[in-house]
């Protein structure tokens, strides 16, 4: 081996360098995507307030949405409250069922659970939302109309479709979090004479609780951002959600319905960007809340 070879970096070192650069580049692209997207939505979303002169509190506290009329009004209260209401109701329905399914898969019958139930859950995860929406439109809406009257479109249809959609999301995350509970804890509890029920409620669920909450939050985040399926069944009428059968509209359904029909730079378009900004801020909030629970878990 001569001196020149020793002075220049070896092939392996160069490989190492390239690997590092590749990693930085990939992470950089991700960071860049996030930053540009935030910049884009923020700069467009605040135009309603800075350029068109709509007051922020008015935007958030009124529910008249007539951006193209001669006296334009944009109030997002009805949209915001419907989004929250449908999402929370969907989570209330889906979360308990999801957690019970997860318990079945992880604790009660691992064999059927992993061989049958889990593949089903994964299959459901992959179904595109337009399919859920179509099922809702052709089966759920007529069913609600026949059973409760009205047109069938509304919060009830929206929340049921959303519950169906986030059920697999929460279930698969819940399965993972229950699997994460150390086997030795179960065995201790059994040794102490605990029944399966006691082991589940006092040990497994208690230890997995923070993770289960994260699972539900991710489910909620998905429901909040879901657009197409909800748009097809919610009725797209901008009014305050008075009862479960009122046809109404969510932030996302309004966005998908209108975005292509508005001209960039007009109030109608800017106001939609403001809705997108609210959605972005909400999903950030959901993520931060999930992070908080993740931290708490580490401490305990």
């Amino acid at each position: 081996m001569n001196l020149v070879e020793l002075k220049s970096p070896s092939k392996e070192i160069r490989q190492d360098h390239w690997g590092k650069i590749l990693c930085y580049a990939a992470t950089g692209v991700l960071l860049l995507l996030l930053l540009t997207m935030m910049y884009f939505v923020f700069s467009k979303g605040i135009r309603t307030f800075t350029v068109d002169g709509v007051k922020v509190w008015k935007f958030l506290t009124t529910s008249q949405w007539e951006p193209t009329s001669t006296t334009p009004k944009v109030g997002a209260l009805a949209l915001i409250s419907t989004s929250f209401l449908t999402t929370i109701l969907a989570a209330v329905i889906a979360a308990p069922i999801a957690i019970i399914i997860a318990i079945y898969v992880v604790v009660i019958d691992t064999k059927i659970g992993t061989k049958l139930i889990q593949p089903i859950v994964e299959l459901l995860l992959g179904i595109p939302s337009v399919v859920y929406g179509f099922v809702g439109l052709t089966m759920l809406v007529p069913l609600i109309r026949r059973s409760f009257g009205g047109t069938g479109f509304g919060i009830l249809a929206g929340m049921l479709i959303l519950a169906l959609m986030i059920l697999p999301t929460i279930t698969s995350l819940a399965i993972e979090s229950l699997r994460g509970v150390d086997r030795s804890y179960w065995n201790f509890a059994y040794t102490l004479g605990g029944t399966t029920w006691q082991v589940i409620t006092h040990v497994i669920l208690k230890i997995a609780a923070p993770n289960l909450i994260i699972a539900v939050i991710y489910g909620i985040a998905r429901a909040f951002g879901e657009a197409l399926a909800v748009q097809m069944v919610i009725g797209n009428t901008i009014q305050m959600p008075i009862n479960l059968l009122t046809p109404t509209a969510t932030l996302t359904s309004k966005l998908t319905t209108d975005i292509g029909n508005t001209v960039a730079g007009t109030l109608a378009n800017d106001a939609l960007w403001s809705l997108a900004l609210i959605l972005l801020l909400m999903s950030l909030a959901f993520n931060l809340i999930a992070k908080r629970f993740a931290k708490r878990r580490v401490k305990s």
Partner: peptide, 11 residues
């Protein structure tokens, strides 16, 4: 009148 709004012919 305030009513349901849809954006596609198919729907």
């Amino acid at each position: 009148v305030k009513s349901q709004e849809q954006d596609s012919n198919g729907t």
